[in-house]
Design a protein around this nucleic acid. Sequence first.
DNA 1: CCTATCGTCAACCGATAGGTTGAATATGGA
DNA 2: TCCATATTCAACCTATCGGTTGACGATAGG
Lengths: 114, 114
Amino acid sequence: MAHSLDTVFAALADPTRRRILGMLLEDDMAVTDVAEPFEMSLAAISKHLTVLTAAGLISQEKRGRVKWCRLEPDALRDASVWMQGFGQFEPVNLDAFERFLESELPGGEKGPSE
Amino acid sequence: MAHSLDTVFAALADPTRRRILGMLLEDDMAVTDVAEPFEMSLAAISKHLTVLTAAGLISQEKRGRVKWCRLEPDALRDASVWMQGFGQFEPVNLDAFERFLESELPGGEKGPSE
DNA sequence: CCTATCGTCAACCGATAGGTTGAATATGGA
DNA sequence: TCCATATTCAACCTATCGGTTGACGATAGG
């Protein structure tokens, strides 16, 4: 384990990558489908997915010609532990979390996957 | 509030900056004292402190000719909430946190401030 | 077999990150 | 007043980041 905090935090620093993680929270997705809502090339998304994989935040499995991306939330645990060391933050507040997810969407659009 | 997740995570992605935060956990410090244990110029540390300040992770107050740096752990709350949205991580485990702090020190040395 | 689709690779680009050095700007103290 | 200390500024350098485009390999399907 122990994908370094360096790579985990660096991966999380990019809004595109955070948005991808949010999308994968709903479901596993193929690379092409991950890319669809973004106004950027498939190659760029492919690179982002590589970064997320390197950080351990997602895993990718190729079935046929489709590569499926799965969220690996456990990779966040180390980083979470590190952050918690700086203070007791209020217990998990999913409403606040959802506000974040929405505030990071571009157009005001909501649904990422269809 | 709402220093962006971009800036907070980007600030946390650098090991020097995480180590500085760990040092400030023990006590407020002057810039020069923050810089002392690092093998890097004072100007470089000053830049790191600027990044941490911009992210809201620390505050700096000038008293006399000395600029004091104080940890602002609240800035981590938003990021923490975001991460918690991906999973319920085990309740605050300070032992694990201390292992991180130590594993990020360079030589095996422990005490940062004296 | 031929072709369309899925995804990556390679080369390139501009912008930013993280470091250096040397000069500049306070401020404190003798 | 003069000097040392504390910190930042400005210019510079190199490496990496995030994006592009076009070619490529692999697989699915008619």
